[in-house]
């Protein structure tokens, strides 16, 4: 399967000199189509930084991030925004649904921003809501839905269209375990259908849904549950 997301020796440093904080120190990672990779590690190990860089929400201070072979570093702000809308889906703990829009409008929004016609965008949004099992709630506003339903809408928004890369940061948030499991099942299904997925979590139970689990510690990738090709520092950095 083709590589959808690739991080090549990525560094992210905040600040300079003695005050510099190294959030990531030379991380390399490749995620293929049909593969779900979970990123685990203690607080402050660089998990969320890795996800923000993978999604083009932040830029590395060293190394390259490539999405479907395209290096994000050479893209201007406008091109980057378009790539994010078209190819990358985000699911965050904080749902970020717009309260003044209905479920279907929330899901259709990224498509409309991308120039898709109103009717086509609505049709795609309804299909995405159907995929996550809330087809009947399209006309409800966020505050008329339960937490679990809102999270499903947020996932529909991440999956709508042809997104080939889905990035999730603690996507089950404060949901109960059954609802949380349903959310992961949706993510798994989309990945099985050919997307690449990255799931940041501190819950082992959630990481269990991944094909591969990588462990971050102090900005380094120190271990993985399956051998990674071409990531030599993985084993040399683990002290074993």
């Amino acid at each position: 399967m083709s590589v959808v997301l690739e991080l090549r020796n990525v560094h992210r440093t905040h600040g300079v000199g003695a005050a510099a904080v190294h959030a990531l120190r030379g991380v390399s990672l490749a995620v293929r189509a049909g593969e779900l990779v979970a990123v685990m590690g203690p607080s402050g190990s660089g998990k969320s930084t890795l996800l923000a860089l993978a999604g083009g929400l932040d830029r590395p201070t060293g190394g390259d991030v490539l999405v479907e072979g395209e290096p994000l570093g050479v893209l201007g702000a406008r091109e980057l925004a378009r790539l994010r809308r078209r190819r990358i889906g985000y699911v965050f703990q904080d749902l970020n649904l717009l309260g003044s829009l209905t479920a279907v409008e929330n899901v259709a929004l990224p498509l409309e921003l991308d120039g898709v016609g109103l009717r086509a965008a609505r049709r795609a949004a309804l299909a995405a809501l159907d995929e996550v099992g809330v087809a009947g709630l399209g006309d409800r506003f966020p505050d008329q839905m339960s937490g679990g339903q809102q999270q499903r809408v947020a996932i529909a928004r991440a999956l709508v269209g042809e997104r080939r890369l889905v990035l999730a940061d603690e996507p089950t948030g404060a949901l109960d375990s059954q609802t949380g499991e349903a959310v992961l099942q949706l993510l798994r299904r989309r990945v099985d259908a050919g997307a690449a997925g990255v799931l940041v979590t501190h819950e082992a139970r959630h990481a269990g849904w991944a094909d591969r689990v990588v462990f971050l510690r102090d900005g380094d990738l120190v271990d993985s549950t399956a051998p990674l090709i071409g990531v030599e520092q993985l084993l040399s950095g683990s002290g074993r």
Binding site: A204, R205, A207, G208, V213, F215, V222, S238, G239, R240
Partner: peptide, 25 residues
């Protein structure tokens, strides 16, 4: 190296968790 002992076990247990999740799914 105690941290390595911890990580080796965590990786193995995580692997088992992945297998179990797959079976449950």
């Amino acid at each position: 190296d105690v941290r390595a002992v911890v990580q080796t076990q965590r990786s193995a247990t995580m692997r088992a968790l992945q297998e179990l999740t797959r079976l449950k799914y």
